[in-house]
Structure formats: C-alpha cells, structure tokens
Design a binder for these strands. Structure first.
Lengths: 351, 351
DNA sequence: AACCGGATTTATAACGTTTTAATTCACTCA
DNA sequence: TGAGTGAATTAAAACGTTATAAATCCGGTT
C-alpha cells in the first residue's frame, strides 16, 4: 500500500501496466480498480485516490482492444473521404479541423475512401455491420442521401457536411451557399455586369440546388441575363471546363460576370479569359468562393469569399462527439455564413 | 453437418456471425473453424471447404477487437500528418494514394496530427507504448529525425517520406530534390538567366539540404550569380515571403530567375513580380515544382515539374505493408525522379 | 492383440476489460 | 443477542479470437 518503489518515473520495468498489475500493486481487486478509474461513486473516495495515483505512477492507459471487445465501443470516428476531386486545400483544412477537435478525446480518426463513382453505401454498410466505428463523418451530401437514410434507420451517430431534404432532422454542418450565390450576383450587378454565368457541381448534391436557387432568383430579381453552363460541372476535368468557357465566350454576347464556386473553376475562368483576349475588370468580372488563401497571391486579383473548412471540420467533429454522447440530433446543426465583410481577405502586403 | 438452413442469403437472422456460431452451424469446434479460416494445412481440405462456405454464407468477418486483443496486432496504420502547412493539394493526393493502396488489405488508416512546433516524438511514443498501430507513415523528415531513431531502436515498422542521414538503412520514399534543383538551374540558365534566387524550406528537413546542394553546385558550375533568400522559409506566411521578395527586387541587380519549391512560393513570386512591374519572360523567369495541376490554369504560364504525391502515398503504403510482413528494411526504398520530359504537363486546351 | 504414428480435431487458457450478482463488513436497532 | 441495513468490495463471467497441449481416430505394424 505504501509505495516502496519511487524509482520508476514513468515507464514500468518490463511489462506494460494493466488493471491486474494495478490491482496487485494497490491490494484491491481488478473490479475495484476498474471502477475506481471510472470514478464510480460507489467506490470509497480514498480508494479512488490511491488507485488514481498508482495508475499515474505506472503510466497506465487502458487497452483499447480489450475495452472495445468488452463494451462494443471502438473509440474510432470514420471520415468518408472523397479521393477524386477536391477544392484546393479542402482535404487538408477539413481533416486538420477534425483531428484538432478530436485530439485528447480518446477518439481516433480513421479515413476511408468514398468514391462517388462506386457504391457510396458500401463503406457505411461495412462500418455498420462490423461496428468499425462509433461515428461517421462525410461530405458531398445528396438531397436524399442513401447514407443518411441508412444511418438514421440504424440510429447510428453521424454528421454530414451539407443538408439533405429528408423531413427528419439529423446533424449537419453546412455553408450557406444560397447566400453566397446571391451575394455574388449582387456584387457583379453592382459592378454593372448584366450577363452572368455559373458552373454548378453535379445535380445530385444538395448544395447544387442551393447555389442554383440563389443564383437564379437573385439574377431574376436584378433583371439581368444569366446562364448556367451546360454539359460541364465543377468536377469536370479542367480541360473540359476551359473548352465550355471558350465556347461560351465565342458567342455574340459573351458573359461579363462569372460566379465561380470552386478555385479550379475560377482559375480556369481567368485562363479562358486571358486566352480569348478578355481583360478582367474591363470585359468581365469574377466572383469566387475559396477554401485556401491562394487567391491572395493571384494577379489579377479577384473578389472572393472564404469558406472556412478547418472550422467546418472542427464543428463537425464537435457535433459528432455530442451526438455520440446521446444529444438530440435536432439540436446538432451549424450553418457557416459567408463572411461578406472580409471579402478578398485583403493581404496588405502589396504596393 | 448437412446444411438444413439455406434460407439466409447474406445476413444472419438477429445476431452477428462469430466463430462460435460457425462452429455450431458446421458441427466443428471453434478451434477447428478458426484454423480452417486461416487455411491451416493441418486441417483437412474438405473441412476447410465446408467452413469457408459456411462463413461466406453467414457473411462472417472476424472481429477486429478480439483478434487485436489476442494477437496484439492492430491492423491499423497511422499517418502522422502535419496540420499546419501544406503544398497545395499535398494532403489530398498523399492520403488518397495511401488509402488506395491499403484498401482491401484489412488495414485501416489512422490520422494523427504532427505539429512541428510540438514535440514530434510524443505521438510516436504514444503509439509505441500502447501499440496503437502496426506501422507508421510520416512526412517532413529531418536529417537526424528523432522519430526514425526511436522507431529503429524499437524495430517498429515505418516508412518516412524523405531520407535521413543515419547510417543504418530504413524504408523511405523520396523525391529527387537535388535533381529538381539542378534541372531548374539549368533551365533558367538556358534561358539566359544569370542571377538566380531560391527560397528554401526550414533547415531541419533533409530535403532542404538536397535542394541547397543541387542549387548551389549547379549554379557554381554554370558560373551564374545566385542567392538563397534569407530570413524566410517555404513555410513562412505568404506575406513575409512577399515582403522578402520585394526587398530583393528593390536592389540594383534583382534576380532574373526564380527556383520555386512550392506552389505558394511560386504564386507569391509571380505576385511580387507583378506588383513591382516586372514581366515574366522579359525581366525574369520562374521554374517551380508543383503537386497539383493548378499551374496549368495560371496565366502567365510558368515552367513546372510535377511531384506525384499520390504515387508517393501509394509507394509508402506498399513499402510499409512489405515491412510489416518482415521484409528487409534495406530493400525498401523508392526514389521518385522529376519527370523532365513532361515539364509543364501541357494541357492542349488553350489557343 | 496390443501398439505405434501420422493426420485431424478439440478442450482450454489467455489477451484486458466491464459488469452482474454476490459477498463482506461494520453498524444500528429492536 | 440477533437480525437488518447500507456501504464497500469482489469473484466470476463474458466479449471473440488464437495458440498450446492434449486427445482422438485410423490404418498399418509387430
């Protein structure tokens, strides 16, 4: 009971500390030690203190496999990550936010590829069937996303990046893309632009509808001409997008205002303009959404709004933690609003 | 022994399939079923077939926690991921390559933040002590990287992105940065440039030395002036880099050739040139390394060499798998060479 | 008829944890 | 005194797997 071995600072001599070794060291039973470490109130306060000290001394950490086997809880959160397309920096920022929030919670982050071409349900089924995680995060949510349906049926904790159109509420974090689109139109119109153009993501994604709605209704309000580029999406190869843009510019009255939802699109738009002799600010303007600070270093400069994906990751992880603790899904949603005050994220570094 | 239940197509009625349920279904013991599934040659061929069929029918998948508890093997690979800086698209491509190779192997990928400011050793210690993974991958390797030393001491499987200067061999995948730097200098000199400039990553990283050596020795060979920009590194804030570049351009004989190791640096360089009235191709040229296809869509175009980080991820995962199977570390290394033939990755999409 | 040996199979322990259902113990109360 | 009470502790089972050591079977010797 009284410590006679004050020599080991952190590491136990040869074998790794376990409940049993702590039990032997303290003289209590394994069951008591387990409860004491869980801070079970039925265990005498003094006992809890003694056990805690012994555990700290030995550097005890509960064995994840054993705990998982016994409780069924994995202490793992799985991120379904699209490995095909990305907005520049999306993955990095998003994943950084997630790990940042989860650090120190005992949960670890597991990354599983989610390729839209494939069956998006199969990774989820796999996790569900074999209980490979306690919670799931995913992106590129569809209006009636089958993953959301399945997970809700199973009552399995998850947070989606993006809303759905299901009636039952579920946890999500989203960016207000409609507001972005409206604001983009307003800005371009304010600059005197009258023929707006937009390239959308694939129809399947919910946020595509938000963008479309915001763009169309605001353009109608303003009474300006507008087009949604056909035959090409945000995820099309840059070459195809460039082709479509050039075709569009070859018409009699080419667009004079571009709303760009992704960075690649924005850059391609700038290139297409340059290639066809159009000059930014004179012949057309561009308004883009960006996830990385890259546009601060592009000349000519364009107007952008920042979507903070690190914060998105943080929020999603936080909601998932709360959901896994049993909080009501209806309470767990968060909207990121475009920061219109800080357009352009102006750098102050240039002359 | 003879299956009387042919009704269940894939899912077992209520409870999940386990060795015990398979044992009951086939009439063999749990031990035999376990061995049969492991394709142990001591088990009769007919028995193995019967068990395999039953397992397939029931949709049996071994429980990871139980197996891990028993064997000590986690079936987890941990990626130490820097969450601060990134070359554009690095994380996405790299991680995609890793998950791509690991898919279907039974290993899952676990992401742990590795922040250079912190103690880079502590995540490794944590993994080692609690056996949280069977193997480790990491980036931003230092010349005498303490993580490499520790892992080698423990004989723990890992693959580093980048070499070290330890004498004992260890698995790594690296890009030939010296060759890149040499080629960059040669190209710029071939264009008639005589005052070259380079911004390096932090000194601690091994690849910094490779870049420096390649740059310096090739510039001396060619007999051209050259400078390594002081007081600023690849990871400095874009604003600081821009500041340093502008200061450099303000001198009497500003650089006329820039070697850019990262995309952000390249963009900042272009901005700094634009801001100071210098024109690409007339007053200076830029040669950059890129990890994303972004430069195809930048105007004016610059010469680039592609570092394929998806392939890097694939290779690292592959080496780790082989290392975990006990292969000799000395055999497990791979160098990616700059693809000089495909400079610029020309797009053919523009007029 | 007893025995051997190789080929199969099996009972059992163990990995480290949590939890159910006792058990112990010191008191209090009638 | 003897039972009742509540607080504190514990023995033991269980989670699903693998590995050790032992058991069984069977055809072929001696």
């Amino acid at each position: 009971m009284t410590r006679e071995t004050t020599d080991l600072p952190v590491a136990p001599s040869g074998t790794k500390p376990t409940l049993r070794s702590l039990a032997e060291a303290t003289g209590f039973s394994v069951a008591t030690v387990s409860r004491a470490l869980a801070d079970d109130q039925r265990i005498a306060a003094k006992t809890r203190a003694v056990v805690a000290e012994a555990a700290a001394l030995a550097g005890y950490v509960p064995d994840r496999a054993a705990r998982r086997l016994r409780t069924g809880r994995t202490q793992v959160v799985t991120l379904l990550l699209n490995t095909e397309h990305e907005f520049l920096g999306f993955t990095h920022e998003f994943l950084s936010g997630i790990t940042e929030t989860l650090r120190g919670t005992g949960y670890s982050v597991n990354v599983v590829p989610d390729d839209v071409g494939d069956d998006r349900l199969s990774p989820v089924r796999n996790i569900l069937r074999n209980h490979l995680a306690d919670g799931i995060l995913f992106t590129r949510t569809e209006a009636f996303d089958p993953r959301v349906r399945l997970l809700m049926e199973h009552g399995f904790p998850f947070v989606s990046h993006g809303r759905t159109e299901f009636t039952a509420p579920h946890p999500f974090v989203d960016f207000d893309n409609e507001a972005f689109a409206r604001q983009a139109v307003q800005r371009l119109v304010a600059k005197g632009r009258t023929r707006l153009s937009l390239i959308l993501p694939e129809d399947r994604y919910t946020f595509t509808q938000h963008l479309r709605y915001g763009f169309l209704s605001e353009a109608r309000n303003a009474g300006v001409e507008h087009e949604i580029v056909e035959g090409v999406t945000l995820d099309s190869p840059a070459a195809s997008i460039a082709e479509a843009l050039r075709a569009s510019r070859a018409g009699d009255a080419p667009p004079d205002g571009y709303v760009c939802v992704g960075e690649v699109t924005a850059l391609v738009t700038l290139s297409a303009m340059a290639d066809s002799g159009a000059i930014l600010g004179r012949d057309a303007d561009v308004f883009a959404k960006r996830a990385s600070p890259i546009f601060d270093n592009i000349r000519p400069r364009i107007d952008t709004v920042f979507e903070d994906l690190r914060e998105t990751g943080r929020k999603m992880a936080e909601m998932l933690l709360r959901r896994m603790q049993g909080e009501d899904p209806a309470e767990l949603s968060h909207m990121l609003v475009p920061d219109f005050e800080r357009l352009h994220h102006s750098d102050e570094t240039q002359g």
